[in-house]
Each structure stands twice: as C-alpha cells, then as structure tokens.
Design a binder for these strands. Sequence first.
DNA 1: TAATTATGGATATAATATATCCGAATTAAA
DNA 2: TTTAATTCGGATATATTATATCCATAATTA
Lengths: 165, 165
Amino acid sequence: MKIGKGVEWAAHACAVLALLPQDAALSRDALAEYLGVPAPYLAKQLQALSRANIVMTQRGVAGGYRLARDAGLISLWDITAALEGTTPSFRCTEIRRNGPCGASPGECLGPCDIAAAFQHAEMAFRDALSAVPLTDIVSKATDVAFEDRKGRIRDWIEQNATGLS
Amino acid sequence: MKIGKGVEWAAHACAVLALLPQDAALSRDALAEYLGVPAPYLAKQLQALSRANIVMTQRGVAGGYRLARDAGLISLWDITAALEGTTPSFRCTEIRRNGPCGASPGECLGPCDIAAAFQHAEMAFRDALSAVPLTDIVSKATDVAFEDRKGRIRDWIEQNATGLS
DNA sequence: TAATTATGGATATAATATATCCGAATTAAA
DNA sequence: TTTAATTCGGATATATTATATCCATAATTA
C-alpha cells in the first residue's frame, strides 16, 4: 500500500495557501520555490486540486492559486482523494466464484467477506483523514515555528503573493 | 493508494487452509486449482506467508501448506503485512525543511504534522484489519454457503489434502 | 533411488508513478 | 489592442513497481 508523493506536495502547498491573506494568490513558480520542489510536476498536482475544487485558479497576469474555501473546510482526505482518486485500494476479483468449489450467484448476494473487511478498514483510514482540517496542520506548524521564521514567512508572502493591495 | 492482488489471493488461500483438518496440507497446485489462479504466481504469495510464519510448509511427497497457528490467531492485517510489508504508505520527504522559509532542525524535533496525520490514519486502517481473524472470514463464508456446496468442499478437501489418515 | 514438492533466483512483461515540456487559452495591464 | 504573465491540457519520456513465469536446487517420503 503506497500513497503517491503528489499527496505530500499538494498538502504542503495547501498549507502555504492557507497562510495567504484574503484575495491574495501565489503563482506556480512561487509555490514551487517556497516548497523547494520542481515546478512543472507541482503544476500537475495543483491541476488536480483545481479540478477537485480545493483551490481556485486565475490565469493571466497576477494570477495564481488560492484556496477555494475556508481552510477549516478542507481536510487531508479531500486533498488525498483529489490526487489519488476514490477507487477502493482493495480490488476484489471475486475469487470465491472460481475453481471446482466456486460459489454460485445465489451465494454471492452480499459482498465478499474479505473485500468487506478491507472496505471497512479503508473507511476508518478515510475517516481519520477527514477529521484533520487544514487549519489543524497550519496551527500546529505555527506552534513550533520560531519567531524569526514566522517573520521570514510573512515577508516572503508579502514579496511573492499577488493581489495584495 | 493500492493494495496488490497478492493480498487477495493470500487471504483466500488462508481461508481454505483454515478448513483443513488438523495435520492435513494442500500442495501449491491443489490450492491454485481450488482458487482458480495461476499456480506459479500463487507460489510467490505462499512463500511470503511462509516467511511471515503464517503458513507452515513441508517439502517432498505429500507435502504442502497448512496454517502455522490457529485461524483465530491470524488476522487480515497479518496477511496484508506479510505480502505488502509494513513500511508506511505515506512517505514524508521533509518538505518543511525546503525552500527560502524552510524549518530549522530545532523546529523539526517532532514529526511533520502532515506525516503524523497520515500515520494516525494508517494505524486506524491497520487496527481495523487486525480486528478480523481468519475465523471470522471462514464463519461468515460458511453462513451463506448452500448445503450442497459445503458438501462439495468437504469432498474436494478429502480428495486433495494430504496427511489425512 | 525415484518421485514429489517448496524455495530462491532470474527473467520477462505490463502497469503505474514520476517528471518534463509545449502549445493553447485566459487574463490583466500597458 | 497589444503584450506579458499565467494556468491548462495533452503529449511524451523515464523510472519504478506490479504481475507473471520458469528453472535449478534442496528437501522429503516411499
């Protein structure tokens, strides 16, 4: 079981966007610089976030990305689902129907018990992530940040965000 | 997030082995026939189960596979871990240290908040699977099986299992 | 010794993840 | 209206992993 690194990138990107003042935005290149990751690939993750309505985009001069709604209404699950999709991680191929003692259709009205157990486990995974809004991430990260770094972050945003009066 | 199909195969294989009488075993080919899957590849999954001490093996004539311990002491998580390993599905690359506003070592004493949330979610996933012993799977499958199929399964085991007096 | 059976390694192929680039569309400002 | 900035979607290339098979070897029993 593996989660693509796009999820990590996207989560950090959203955490940065959550720091922006109202109506400010960050370009792809600015975000990539802040996160220290290659811009072209980050763009892919941002597109996925855009399709999922987690971030809003604005093209053209002074455009960029911003959160599409309040950071308290965006969970880590939302971000994960946007990047990885929602197809179940366990793929049941109905082995129970195979072989010389395979189950008949009448015995397969319910889902396979093994598949059901995995589905249940995945729901627990999903629920745990759904319980973590972006605001949690941001506030915890802020808690442990030293004062001088908070200042540097403020300055960098001041310098790089667009849409600031 | 995806789980390899080896997990499915191994789970079904273990469920069959749980039906065997004490000291009986099934060969690789017999198991593959019962499950309706290619024998060579199934052998790989069985090897993983063997390394994880979930099944016992016996080579030579009349050898084969049997459960290494009581079915009540084998969980779906045990099987999953044997096949997929236990490395965390979320791989933290410490993005927080990157870029012009990267965190200093002193600010990274605890784990990254994002990684911690995923770790927590994965624990929930693992706990859910750990709560499902093989006996659950077997009993639920038996509940919905028609009588004639139960008989056919008994007969097939009688015919194909080794180590029966 | 002969027959059977799991093991480990090597290998081949398919699928997916990772990473980049480019033209087109869009937008704000000059 | 032009120009520069910027995201979007598609195409592509590469690396990694999953899937699947085969074979020589070791072990075991009759």
